[in-house]
Design a protein around this nucleic acid. Structure first.
Length: 608
RNA sequence: GGGUUGGUAGUUCAGUUGGUUAGAAUGCUGCCCUGUCACGGCAGAGGUCGCGGGUUCGAGUCCCGUCCAGCCCGCCA
């Protein structure tokens, strides 16, 4: 053995023990004839004391940062203690040492507050991983995974592996494809999720399955999106929506307890998709703060159950009159915003990413009067009405956006989040869970004038909507009025779990009858031959006693990053890819040898 | 595909209106130092200002193009 203890282990009770330690040199502090060295490993830092009789040997074998060394010596009490670290009361009086391996000077400091930038840290990720800050994130990730596994194991879930080399089905995200040498001209796809396999496992009778599994999607990246990512993928047989919700609420509460020692005992609110869009402009709202949206004018066909109150804003103001939608929300205690601050908000919504033409505001003065950017179109009485509608009181600021429905709703949602962040209402240590349910089953795809599955094609409609689906022709005769098609109102038996404005999990009760599945594929524009080609195996399996089933998948990386208080999932992945999908450490992707192309019988044909 | 911010010493950054030898901190090297733990002191080395082109007497600075990186929109069932 190279060591008797780790560098985080020794305490005052070990004084006078003879020990052997091994680790990396964090720092060398030389004081004339004595030298201090901080020795680091995964478990901590232990100070080494080299006294004067080792000077000759140190001069002959000088130590540098990140050298790997082994020391033998006696644990002794420090004369000056450092209570900032667990081992700070002791040090090792070194009797002998050996250099196991040298290191060249690292390109950045291996410290909690490193001087290295992101790019360099990624290139030398193996050094970055030595840092405490990164190590803590990977430890948190391990803890989340362990907690989930323990919970699922205790509840009879069985971990079953599914293949990575599967069949491409260009529905949904773009597939990563892998050429097959033995089947020239044919390709595997890497799974976007093990969806069909876990359903087949249900058909096989493995009634509770889970897998913490890699999934692959060839789409553009973000701070919270990687081309390969990990899901906690789960499926259950003989369940309804509420069974899944109960089971996995408990799992999340367990993870909060195990990982963060948080007793998340409060009830987790359920909100319908329509209500979420109406109230927050968003299907994954952050409900840690209010600022609920007030729809002053909206297209009734989008939210048929809501009441139009556009009379509130009746005036000569062309912008509001011509807008499809007018949405306002109230920011508490911000009526003292300066001209500069309101101008900044106007500029913020005019950025290309938001793309609004402007922003109206009403300041509710403490004396009960109003000051507004739309003063000349509205009387004091009307402004007061709008304020009342927005639940604003004296001292508040009302922000109003107007324009096309979808764009305006999204912009208002973005502005609400922006205000939440600006006002410090989005604390990374506050956690608020939410279920969003009753999503539309279909979405309208304008370019093809057809329906696409909002969740995925295996999601079943709400039981009450099954007849609507079966008894109507999915074909859209009048593109302009697609919202009047019966399919537009079919709700999915699906649910998303939202944490602090992030979708951390989503699932559905699946279709398990062959006929309904065929109807679904047909609704998505697949004829019988195409259905058979792409999903014949699934339709076939449904003929042999497929049980009712459903499931859910959690975004493991994202869940970890939120629990760790970070916006970026890269911090929680040992070897992540950069914005362009590159691994800058191993320099992948890369070209391959001509021999490999020949074996695969593939020729490149670059466009320009 | 689009928007936006950045690229200067090993590293993190500053660099004014276009004008002398491009700076600081940290790291590195050497010397000094017996209680440090962000040790301290002194000295030193270290630069293709991302790359290419242009404007100019003169470009790190202005213009055009391009590459790389970060964030966002589109996209992501």
């Amino acid at each position: 053995m190279f060591r008797s203890h780790t560098c985080g282990k020794l305490r005052v009770e070990n004084i006078n023990t003879e020990v052997t330690l091994a680790g990396w040199v964090q720092t060398v502090r030389k004081f004339g004839s004595i030298t201090f060295v901080d020795l680091r490993d995964r478990y901590g830092i232990t100070q080494l004391l080299f006294n004067e009789n080792l000077n000759a040997e140190l001069d002959a074998n000088p130590l540098g940062r990140e050298f790997v060394i082994q020391v033998k010596g006696k644990v002794s009490e420090r004369s000056n203690k450092n209570l900032n670290i667990p081992t700070g009361e002791i040090e090792i009086a070194v009797e002998s040492f050996s250099i196991l391996n040298k290191s060249i000077t690292p390109p950045f400091t291996i410290q909690d507050d490193t001087d290295g930038g992101d790019e360099l840290r990624m290139k030398y990720r193996f050094l970055d991983l030595r840092r405490n800050a990164v190590k803590k994130n990977l430890e948190l990730r391990y803890a989340v995974g362990r907690s989930a596994r323990n919970y699922l194991h205790e509840n009879e879930f069985m971990d079953i592996e599914t293949p990575f080399l599967i069949k491409s089905t260009p529905e949904g995200a773009r597939d990563f494809v892998v050429p097959s040498r033995m089947n020239a001209g044919q390709f595997y796809a890497l799974p976007q999720s093990p969806q069909t396999f876990k359903q087949l496992l249900m058909v096989s009778g493995y009634d509770r399955y889970y897998q913490i599994v890699k999934c692959f999607r060839d789409e553009d990246l973000r701070a919270d999106r990687q081309p390969e990512f990990t899901q906690i993928d789960c499926e259950m047989t003989f369940v309804e929506q509420e069974d899944i919700i109960q089971m996995f609420e408990k799992m999340i509460r367990r993870i909060f307890k195990d990982v963060k020692n948080i007793d998340y005992n409060e009830a987790i609110e359920k909100i319908t998709w329509e209500e979420a869009m109406w109230t927050y402009g968003n299907d994954k709202p952050d409900i840690r703060f209010g600022m609920k949206l007030n729809n002053l004018k909206f297209p009734a066909h989008t939210f048929p159950t809501k009441v139009d109150i556009s009379a509130t804003i009746k005036s000569d103001f062309a912008v509001f009159n011509e807008a499809e939608t007018v949405i306002a929300f109230c920011v508490q205690n911000c009526n003292d915003y300066s001209r500069k601050q309101t101008d900044e908000l106007v500029e913020w919504v005019k950025r290309p990413q938001i793309g609004m033409k402007g922003l109206a505001f009403i300041k509710c003065n403490v004396d009960g009067t109003f000051k507004s950017s739309i003063d000349k179109f509205y009387t004091e009485e009307q402004l007061k009405n709008i304020a009342t509608t927005c639940h604003a009181v004296a001292g508040d600021l009302i922000l109003i956006l107007a324009g096309a429905e979808e764009k305006t709703r999204k912009a208002t949602s973005d502005l609400r989040m922006h205000m939440g962040t600006t006002l410090g209402l989005r604390n990374a240590n506050d956690f608020k869970l939410l279920w969003v349910v009753d999503f539309p089953l279909f979405e309208y795809a304008e370019e093809d004038n057809r329906w696409v599955a909002r969740h995925h094609p295996f999601t079943s409609p709400k039981p009450s909507d099954i007849n609507t689906m079966i008894n109507n022709n999915p074909k859209i005769e009048n593109a302009a009025e697609y919202l009047k098609h019966p399919y537009a109102n079919i709700k999915a038996n699906a649910y998303d779990m939202v944490l602090n404005g992030n979708e951390i999990g989503g699932g559905s009760i699946r279709i398990y009858q062959k006929e309904l599945q065929q109807k679904m594929f047909a609704a998505l524009g697949m004829d019988d031959a195409e259905q058979q080609h792409k999903f014949g195996f699934l339709l076939g399996a449904f003929e042999y006693g497929a049980p009712p089933h459903g499931g859910i998948a959690f975004g493991f990386d994202r869940l970890c990053s939120i629990l760790g208080g970070s916006e970026s999932i890269r911090d929680f992945i040992a070897f992540p890819k950069n914005n362009s999908g590159r691994d800058v450490m191993i320099d992948a992707p890369s070209t391959i040898d001509n021999k490999q192309f020949e074996e695969l019988q593939i020729k490149l044909d670059f466009k320009d």
